[in-house]
Design a protein around this nucleic acid. Sequence first.
RNA 1: GGGGAGAUACCAAAGCGGCCAACUGGGGCAGACUGUAAAUCUGCUGUCUCUGACUUCGUAGGUUCGAAUCCUGCUCUCCCCA
Length: 423
Amino acid sequence: MNFIEELRWRGMVHNLVPGTEEMLAKGMATGYIGFDPTAPSLGIGNLVTIMMLVHFQRCGHKPLALVGGATGMVGDPSGKASERPILSLEELRFNQEKARAQLEHFLDFDCGENSAEMVNNYDWFSQFSLLDFLRDVGKHITVNYMQAKDSVKTRMDTGISYTEFTYQLIQGYDYYHLHKEYGCQLQMGGSDQWGNITTGTELIRRLGGGEAFAVTTPLLTKADGSKFGKSESGNVWLDPKMTTPYAFYQFWLNAGDEEVVKSIKIFSTKTREEIESMIVDHEANPGARILQKALAEEITVRVHGEAALKRAQTASSLMFSKNPEDLNEVSFEDLQEILKGVPSGKVDASALEAGIPILDFLVETGAFPSKSEARRMIQQGGLKINLAAWDSFDAQINHSNLFDGKLIWIKKGKKHDHIVYLQ
RNA sequence: GGGGAGAUACCAAAGCGGCCAACUGGGGCAGACUGUAAAUCUGCUGUCUCUGACUUCGUAGGUUCGAAUCCUGCUCUCCCCA
């Protein structure tokens, strides 16, 4: 499989160094992408470049996943309007380990000669003295050249620290190092990385290392132009503790019709024929959400596993169920698992014994900030208790409203939930 | 240093003595339609003991039967000239 051809039909080529295709055609090549451990988990935003590596490996090449222990300490100015805060060493170390573990889900580290490898630039930078760096690296790149990069240029007015200014040299040296030590001839990344990558190829050339190539992928945006990878509740992470598998699954399921066509090409490892035929079906009947379902399924399995997918699917059908009877199908334990991550409150057994007026109950348990809002929700017909519509202001909540004697599930409209546990 | 303009609910922006809990737009929320979408439509969007009451219009006072609207001090913001 021709890697560049593969990226092209998937809509993943933004820019490439001339000659890249010819180089790759010669046989197995080694390529790398760097991930900066600036958050305690990789997010969906990182997934696009992860997929580049995945496709790269599937095309028979050898991927290197670089965890940026060193670059993370410096801070990449690309696409950032202002200086970034410095993370502590402990945070960075913790994040690096997380990133490493997550990447292992995607790449095959044991498949013979094109097995993936994980490298950490902290390993070669921690021993690199400033003086050596200045003499061996800094000497070869002019400030004029560095200044011309967009990432630097846009910051010249507002200010950029020496540290972030130097970032491109650090990343550039990474490429040189991998080129020398691993025979790495290709660096991939998001289009915002173009400047940093070309500093690397330039450095390799000047240091007499010969030719090095690069491909970047367009930054994925949503139809409304907003940044990909965020849901209304914030960033979507790969770590199940930070984004539950259910929320993760829902994120993909909710992709827009236009967006999902772009997404499936990037994130699915299905063949071109399969994907294209699915797209045809999808366009004939977008209401069936064929692509959304397929995509959500495939990615959730890869990140969280088969069992987590099944739970997410069960949870999805219950969360959007219109039939209160469906509750009878699940156990307390199931429900607790499904509702994990939903905001919750507590209610006193003795108070419940006596019965609590609905409005008081809704406010006291934290479901609503004021009785007015709670009243409004009921008025508008958005309130459901244990999936059953609730339309009275003065009815009371008591033991009979408990599910399995243990909790009360409050639905506020279609998409907001609140759980009250018996105390 | 001199002169001017302004501070209104999540944001923007009307109101300039009673009909103002405050026009309008955005946002948010709910409902309808649908596909757990988009677009569209409708309603809601200070609090409460909710067809009524109470507390809000930078802040502290004052005038008045009555103020977001008039007066005074204070704080902050913006603009122009030096």
